[in-house]
Every structure is written in C-alpha cells, then in structure tokens.
Design a protein around this nucleic acid. Structure first.
Lengths: 328, 328
DNA sequence: CTGTTAGCGCGTTCAC
DNA sequence: GTGAACGCGCTAACAG
C-alpha cells in the first residue's frame, strides 16, 4: 500500500491537485509558502513516492529511455549498457534495459512505455520487432555493428580494421591463418569474414574456417576453447587465428595453452571488439577496438535530436574501429 | 500515438471491455468465437500493444520484479543481472534492473512499480533506501556478499574460504603476504580482511596493506595495476598478494608483469569472486568462487514465497563460497 | 455473450 | 491560492 497523493491530501484537508502542484512544479508561485512547506514536509514524513506508471499515463511522457539489446552479456554488451546508462542519466532520464534476445518471443518489458529507444546491434531483429510488434511511434535509433539503415543509426564498420588485421598477420609471415567464428546465418556478409576471405585470396593463401555453434554466453568461451583444441588435434597447428570476437580469441588462447602451444611464437591470435580484458592477458591480445563510448554518446545525441524534432531527416553516422597490434 | 483498446473497439463497434476480455483471458469461453477471432485479428492488424503502465495501474500488479544493484559492472555484477534475469523470466515475470549506485541520490527508476524486488549486495544501502524512500510495501529480498539481516536474505560468507586461501599461501612458504583492496569504510569488518589479518597474526607474520581509492569500474583495474607497480617499487616485492576481488587480482597480475615479475614463481596471487576470466589467464588465477547461480536462484525462490505469502517468517540462507587453488 | 460503470494514481484544465 | 472535474489506457464488477 504505497502512500498516494490523496492519502496526503486527505490528511491535510487539501485537494489532490494542490498536493500535486507542490510536488511537481517546484517553481509554481501560485501556492502559499505555508501550504507548500506543509505539504512537502508531510509528503516526506509519510514516505510518499510518486507512482511513475500513473504519472506517465497522465503526462504522456515517461522520462524513460529504453535500451533494447540482444544480450546483456558478455562484457562487450555490459559495457554498452553501462555507457548508455551514464549518458542517459546525465541528461536527466532514466534508462530501462530490455533484453530482447536474439530471436523468439517478444518480451513483456517492451510493453512498458518510454520516450525513446536506443536499439543496440542486430538491425534485422529490430526491424522485425518494429514491424511485427507495431511499435508505438516513439523515436528509435539503432546502433552497433549491425544496423538497420531505414532508421536513425550509428554504425561501426569492421571491414577496414579487419583488413588491416589480416595484412598484419600476413606481413608477419603467417601462412596458415584460420578464421574462427560461431556459425551464423549472416556469416558471408559479415565484414570480418569478407575481409578475411579477400585477404587470404589476394595473398594466394588457403582459407580455413573453424566454426562452432552459437551457444549461450555462459558457455561460449569454453566452447571456443574446446573447438580450437579439437581443430588443432585434427588438422594441425595453424600459424594464426583471426577470431570473430574477443571472447572467441580468449577461449582460443586458453585452448592453445592447453595444448602447450605458445602465443605468439607458435600461433598468433587476433580478436575483435577491444574489451578491456584483452589488455590484461599475457601477452596482451591484438584486437580491433570499437569506440564504444563515442558510439553510445552519438546514438544518444541522435535520439535526443529525434525526440525534440520528430520530422528530422534520417540521421546516420559511422564511427571508426581500429586494429591494434599487441603481443599476441 | 500507439493504438489503444478503444481504437480497436471503436473500429469494431464493440465496447472496450469486450476487446479487453479477448486480449487478456485467452481461456475465457464467455465470448463468441466469432468476435474473439475478429478482435484478435484486427488487434494484430492494427499493431495493438497493451500499455503496461496502464495495465499495472488497473490491475495493481505489474508482473515485473525489480533488481536493485549498486552497479551493473564489472562482470561479477553483470553475471548477477544475467542470472536473475534468467530465473525471473522463466517464471513468467519480466525484470527491471535498477542501478541504485553506491551512494547519493535516488534514481527515478525506483519509482516504477513492481511486484517485488531483488536487492543485490550492499545491505546498508538497501536499508537506507527503504527507510528514506518510504518504499511501497512490496516484498524485498536482499542477497549477496553484504546483506541486511532485517530482511529476507541470501548471504554468502567469505570468512571460511578466505581463511583457507590464506592457509594455502602460508603453506606454500610465502612470508610477505600483502592484502590488496580498495579503501572502504567497512574495511575492518570485511571478512576477507579479517581472515587475512587473523591468519597473518597467527602465523607470526607482518600484515601489509596495499590500498587504493575506490574508483569507477571503468578505471578500477588500471588503478589496481598502477597501485601494485608503485607499491612494489617503493616497498619491494611481496611473496604473495591476497586481493579483495578478481578485478584487483587481474590488475595486480598485469602490474607484476609490467615489472617483469613472474606468477607464481615470484609472487603468488589470489583473487575473490570466481569470475570466469580467472580461468582463462595464464596461469589461471586462484580465487574464491561464489556460487552465483545458486545464490540468485535461492533469492528468487525466497521472493516468490514472500509474494505468495507476505506473512511468512523471515527467510534466511547462506550459500557456500569455496577457495580454489589454481596456477597463480 | 456483451455493454455500462467505476476506479487505479496522477496531471491538468477551468472555475471559484 | 485552491478545489472540482475530467482523462490517460486499462481491468473488473455488475447488469442485462
């Protein structure tokens, strides 16, 4: 039984509207200082807390922005959540994280109203959600590695840094370079894969694909680890591994260590995403660094623009990921 | 302008209640099959989506459980978020993650209604929030390393495994064992610290404290890293480090590597929490493993009990953390 | 089987 | 300065 406006109005023999006024418009001079202070005090004393749902209903505005993401884990996603939370909070909004999953049923949380949505990654999933769900017409901006281009979006292109990464490995004299990735429907469109394949072809080398099922985050690394072990035992030791993401790279490193192989002497490893952990390995893992902070900041800026002016022409931006060669 | 119940009622010349009925009670046989199907079809066609806020207001039930946490980062916290999300979802609820921060102002999100709350860690913060916020009397269960004992709670005691960890280090013949932790008000009550100090004293060894400011998660590791570097340069090389958490341990390892020191030959390192990453380091990092999954599961169970029966006597449980000696 | 009514907690006219 | 009345979108009790 939370205490409501009318609870405190009743106690004070006032009307709810009066109480509402002092609790909302702190600048409203239409109320006597006396009642203003009285109301404020008893509200506090009674432990009044506004019901945000009711307020949203009445105002048509929630002061909430939703963050739709296909996952909140592993750390790459958590970072996005953290960064968006920070941006959004500092503008006086609160954030609602909605884990929409990679596929399957709609989540209940998506039915809670918000003033706008930041949709991370997985453009196709977003479009599908918007279409099938007939989403209320709140502003949406899509951002991440994989965006729907029909919306406002902030994308990041991995093609160039992936090509650099491959160039780097090849320049090191590595010949057997394998591409390690979870199996996905979009494999052949993925810029990492494209860059890999093109680079290998151009260098006159044979492409080697190591793939594993896309399993839940909780076991992703260990599957990557096992996959590498199995692959090496079956097919011998590659000179280098170009990995789909840092999680895969880290799993792979562990697998190589299991087999007594050294990094980078025996096998060079390159990851992707640039999670902090890669710097803390020994040796540090070479990776493609996605400027997450900039990405989130710009997405939030786009969303703010759109919330202010719904008729804006479509907003698009691309942030630059960079390959960083490190010890591995 | 989302489409509402009355939009579709109007279109069909029905009353909103009829529409509401078919859209809610899918088992309700009080409606003719004809209208049932008609309504369902046009609802879908018009892209109807229920407004959860309005529904909550009318029903007095949200189908949401809130997860209050002092942080959603680093990965230890993200894991908790993930595990709770999974538990809660599989029971048909959706979850609302509320980052209440370690201190300071109340967050707006806390004003959104929920049917119950899972409060992770930081019992004092929770109690403060409940008190000062005059929280609506929804069920709350507190869980984590640091619980309020006045509520339902699932705690984990680190004293025993910490003692084991210390015993382990001492049995390895390490003499200079330092305790590395962020500075906190509760330092001397923290079971890790207590176990450390007692073990050192009992073994006739000198306690050495290495501490650093509690900085935001984004720079926590690098501060730990620098702290260790500075400490070693000033005070020489300890034989072992007993670290407050895995983040600290990982930062410390990196710092030691920076100085050309080897783990565990020169310095042994022990962490705490048991995040996955510790297994993927080379060598794997010894740590105290907190059974997060069990903890979250039991907390959710407690909350379900409480939601069903508010008059239940207070529920308490303690899960067991275990020290695992690994390569470091 | 379906419509009418009331009310969830709150913000907001429009009177007084 | 303050109160009465209405509506946000929806569910639930009660009629019919």
């Amino acid at each position: 039984m939370p205490v409501t406006l009318s609870d405190i109005a009743e106690r004070l023999n006032l009307s709810t509207s009066t109480v509402s006024r002092v609790l909302n418009g702190q600048d409203d001079p239409l109320i006597s200082k006396a009642t203003r202070e009285l109301v404020a005090a008893t509200a506090k004393e009674m432990g009044y807390r506004p019901n945000a749902a009711a307020r949203a209903l009445a105002k048509g505005r929630t002061n909430v922005v939703a963050l739709w993401t296909v996952s909140i884990f592993p750390v790459f996603y958590s970072q996005v959540v953290r960064l968006c939370t920070e941006s959004v909070k500092s503008s006086g909004y609160s954030i609602r994280v909605v884990d929409i999953g990679r596929s399957g049923a709609r989540v209940g949380s998506i039915n809670w109203p918000s003033d706008g949505v930041l949709a991370f990654d997985s453009g196709s999933r977003i479009e599908q959600l918007i279409a099938s769900a007939g989403h209320p017409k709140v502003p949406i901006v899509n951002f991440g590695l994989n965006c729907a281009h029909s919306l406002d979006h902030v994308s990041v292109n991995l093609l160039k840094p992936s090509t650099e990464a491959m160039r780097h490995l090849i320049s090191l004299g590595r010949k057997r370079i394998a591409y390690v990735a979870p199996t996905e429907s979009e494999d052949f469109k993925d810029p990492r894969c494209v860059a890999y394949y093109d680079a290998m072809t151009q260098a006159g080398l044979n492409a080697e694909f190591v793939s594993f099922d896309r399993v839940p985050p909780a076991v992703y690394r260990s599957v990557a680890r096992q996959t590498i072990c199995g692959y090496v035992q079956d097919s011998g030791v590659p000179d280098a591994l170009f990995c789909y993401d840092d999680e895969t790279a880290i799993g792979a490193c562990r697998g190589l260590h299991d087999l007594g192989l050294r990094i980078p002497e025996d096998v060079a490893v390159v990851g992707c995403n640039g999670i902090e952990e890669t710097q803390y390995h020994n040796p540090p893992i070479s990776t493609i660094i996605v400027p997450l902070e900039e990405m989130c900041r710009r997405a939030w800026r786009f969303l703010q623009n759109r919330m202010i002016n719904p008729d804006l022409p479509i907003q698009e931006a691309e942030v630059k990921a960079v390959f960083e060669a490190r010890g591995s």
